[in-house]
């Protein structure tokens, strides 16, 4: 597989603090790669190392097969980057920021560069405010401008640090649509706290905690792993005898019980999905004291997996 990003033992220390500990990370071409972790986990440090803004204490990082220390300028000529808190020259307008950014990448007729700037403004819906100084922009408008300047150069790799931060739900939806549209042209490596977004668009995920990589792989694998298969069952009536019956089955690991209005909801974790598929519903239906009002295989949410991995130390590796 062709890796766009490949780090080997990438480490960054500040005096006594290890911000990043021996990171081994591979990002495949044309993936949308969600890079997750709590605040201070080392996500932004990793991005800065990839951009050559800081130097590694140990290890190496390659982007497009080029070394981030030796070939930083060549790497940056193929990257688009949205910082977590985008800062531009305040006296410039959005159009000037994009024109200035494009000037680092392109040469050619002014009219063509201006046309590219127009296209980019259009993509993020900033045409109406293109000529206003950005010092009057809201957080959401700055974020849109940040996304615009990050992809003005048709990057082969788009690095986005919290791309949907400060955006309203419509703005968030637009960003996810743009990311999905760009997937066939570029690789997207992005950090976010909005796990729902990651689950919607990402195909690969890595979770960083306290500078260490604690999970890394295709999102489907990550969601399927850990607790194994579980069923979510919604019941009405007296559930005590049904509970005893199900709990006694050798293929049942645990039953979590919670109440919701008139219903009782069980999350039944099973060790043998095949037997559970054949038997669980029949056992419940056979008990005349309960009515089964809901029954489905539980799909793990990324948020659950994330919290389990991060709060449970390195067990999720």
């Amino acid at each position: 597989m062709e890796w766009v990003i490949d780090t080997q033992g990438l480490t960054k220390s500040y005096k006594e603090v290890d911000a990043l500990k021996a990171l081994n990370l591979q990002v495949p071409k044309h993936s949308i790669f969600g890079f997750l972790g709590p605040n201070g986990a080392g996500k932004t440090t990793t991005i800065k190392l990839l951009l050559g803004l800081i130097r590694p204490t140990a290890g190496t990082a390659k982007v497009f097969g080029l070394d981030t220390v030796q070939d930083s300028v060549a790497i940056r000529s193929r990257i688009g980057y949205l910082p977590q808190d985008p800062r531009f020259y305040e006296s410039m307008s959005a159009r000037q920021v994009l024109d200035y950014t494009a000037g680092f990448f392109f040469k050619g007729p002014r009219a063509e560069i201006e046309r590219r700037v127009e296209e980019t403004l259009d993509l993020v819906g900033l045409q109406g405010k293109a000529d206003r100084p950005i010092k009057g922009f809201s957080g959401g408008e700055r974020q849109r401008l940040g996304i615009a300047q990050a992809q003005v150069n048709y990057p082969d790799l788009l690095i986005l640090d919290e791309p949907a931060a400060s955006l309203d739900p419509m703005g968030r939806r637009d960003v996810l649509e743009v990311m999905d549209r760009l997937r066939k042209y570029t690789t997207i490596f992005y950090c976010t706290h909005i796990l729902d977004d990651v689950q919607r668009v990402s195909d690969m995920v890595a979770i960083l905690n306290k500078g260490e990589l604690v999970a890394h792989g295709p999102i489907a694998e990550l969601l399927a792993g850990g607790e194994g298969v579980a069923y979510e069952v919604r019941l009405k009536g007296d559930t005590s005898s049904a509970y005893q019956c199900v709990a006694e089955q050798p293929w049942v690991n645990t039953i979590q019980v919670r109440k919701q209005n008139e219903s009782t909801i069980w999350t039944v974790s099973v060790s043998d999905p095949q037997i559970a598929e054949n038997s669980l519903f029949r056992l419940l239906a056979a008990d005349e004291k309960v009515i089964v009002t809901g029954y489905h295989i539980k799909e793990h949410e990324l948020e659950e997996v994330f919290l389990r991995i991060v709060e449970g130390g390195n067990n999720g590796r």
């Binding site: 070939d71 300028v73 000529s77 392109f106 063509e112 046309r115 296209e119 042209y185």
Partner: peptide, 19 residues
């Protein structure tokens, strides 16, 4: 090639090179 892929249809605007 990437520029063409993105549908600019623009052969005049070229990427700067050199590092």
């Amino acid at each position: 090639a990437n520029l063409t892929q993105h549908g600019t249809g623009n052969s005049m605007m070229v990427m700067k090179t050199g590092s």
